[in-house]
């Protein structure tokens, strides 16, 4: 060792100036941690290749669904005087929240496995900041995708809700709240399962059940008996009904606050669970 140190010592700049010249950083507060970490996840917005698929996918799906299920609007169970796109788009916004939430969970397991999370956990920062930062960023990204869907709906598919701009904004709020709360559900699951390949199928099944056993694509009244019972208690149906009512202009405080409240309760339960099992897992 000794000979080596001598040889390496000559003529190279010091890496670290010890002593007062280079004080150790003083650590950052939890708000700074959250803003830096959510900023990290939001950087994908600068990269069109990362943003476009997320924006295009729901629009593509909307195109398919609006053509395939158009005939539903001619059935008796369908509310009279409503165009199918006005019926479909609010539901579409809400359902896109499920895949957005799932994406959060999968991204978390991926990072837990590629080591960057281990680096954060070896640093003097709160474990919760990592999850809160991701939650904020992913909800914002979901909001961007949903906004794109609304704009495309209005420009291309003739989405013209009776509730007008405010109604559409209400839909967006509900959908974002749902993606925020489902994000925590999936992050809790991923902190617990820790492997993307375990999370994907569970999330996929949950996604399917929540989506199709709901009033998203057809009115509940049009479903067979047992499915109708499930669909009417499905929380997704609740959010979709609220979003529809808002876009149809049937706005009152309750319509908006009930689903937001449910989302808040879901987060209040799952966020501590997620943070706790995240802290434990290694």
């Amino acid at each position: 060792m000794s000979t080596v140190t001598e040889q390496a010592a000559e003529g190279r700049p010091a890496i670290d100036e010890p002593g007062p010249a280079a004080p150790r950083y003083q650590g950052s507060g939890i708000l700074r941690q959250i803003s830096v970490l959510s900023g990290r996840s939001l950087r994908v917005l600068r990269d069109p290749a990362m943003v476009l698929p997320g924006v295009l996918e729901p629009i593509l799906m909307l195109t398919v669904f609006s053509q395939v299920f158009k005939s539903v609007s001619q059935t008796s169970a369908f509310p009279p005087g409503v165009s199918y796109i006005d019926f479909l788009l609010p539901a579409f916004l809400v359902t896109s929240a499920v895949s957005a939430g799932l994406k959060s969970g999968v991204a978390l397991t991926t990072e837990m496995n590629n080591g960057i999370i281990a680096r954060f956990r070896s640093m003097p920062i709160h474990t919760g900041s990592v999850l809160v930062g991701r939650s904020i960023a992913d909800t914002a990204l979901a909001g961007v995708n949903m906004l794109a869907l609304l704009v495309a709906g209005a420009l291309v598919f003739g989405f013209d809700p009776a509730g007008g701009f405010l109604g559409a904004a209400g839909c967006l709020a509900i959908a974002m709240a749902l993606s925020w709360s489902l994000g925590w559900v999936f992050m809790a699951m991923s902190a617990w399962l820790r492997r993307p390949e375990a999370l994907q199928p569970i999330g996929g099944i949950l996604n399917l059940v929540l989506l199709f056993a709901s009033n998203a694509f057809v009115p509940v009244e049009g479903l067979p008996g047992w499915l109708r019972t499930f669909a009417s208690v499905n929380p997704m149906s609740q959010a979709i009904t609220a979003a529809r009512d808002l876009s149809m202009g049937e706005v009152d405080a309750g319509t908006l606050l009930a689903p937001l409240g449910i989302c808040a309760v879901i987060v209040a339960i799952t966020a501590p669970l997620a943070i706790r099992s995240f802290r434990r897992s290694a």
Partner: peptide, 9 residues
């Protein structure tokens, strides 16, 4: 930069 910011720089 991310790491430095998290450490308080």
């Amino acid at each position: 930069i991310l790491i430095a910011r998290l450490l308080g720089a």
